[in-house]
Amino acid sequence: MDLLAAGVREALRLLVSGDAEVVAILLLSLQVSGAATLISLVLGIPAGAALALLRFPGRTLVVSAVNAGMGLPPVVVGLFVTLLLWRSGPLGAWEILYTPAAIVLAQAVIAAPIVMGITLAAVQNVPEKFRLQLLALGASRTQMVGVVLREARLPMLAAVMAGFGGIISEIGASMMVGGNIKGQTRTLTTAMVLETGKGNFEVAIALSLLLLVLVFGVNWALTAIQQRRVW
């Protein structure tokens, strides 16, 4: 119990004093997971919307694959992204293994199916009759999809929350493709594993508090938007 209390005290001290290393880790985590979330939105929203609106043979199979992909284990993604980026691998020429870019790539792969799956469900929830009414008012296909996405904007905020929440807290992929290199690819979660292993519980606690506050803060902001329904 003393260990925990001392840990929390030290953690608060580290946070309040703005420890340079902790701040650097926090910023890197935010940047990496933020960028990965953005990429997953750019890819996942159009793909999810297309999947919701188009009918083609094998569609059910693709939808099932996307839904399964929402639970993709980060370690598995880490392994395959590592193999892709390995010096002799297909993307070895990029030379990004063990850089933040590799973590962004891996996390985007984890988040994209989540964004896609939630978008798919949200768009499918907009009645088909509504789409017909938009066309009947003279909407082009693109305008129709635009309005439908706008209709689905509230459930789609859940896609952002789920995507970001899933990757800011994942560790397997970050560890494998980032390598937890101090000052370069050390994120909140990889640092926590390291510090806990070394017995530096107070640092680990500080980092875990930061992670919790971060996840809560982002979700709080998005939820506020969602619940206020302002736009």
């Binding site: 009645p127 009759k129 509504f130 017909l132 009414q133 009947a136 008012l137 706008r150 209709e151």
Partner: peptide, 12 residues
């Protein structure tokens, strides 16, 4: 042209 249907589905 413009069509009005039985069910007025309005945007949010």
């Amino acid at each position: 042209m413009a069509t009005v249907f039985q069910e007025p589905l309005l945007a949010d």
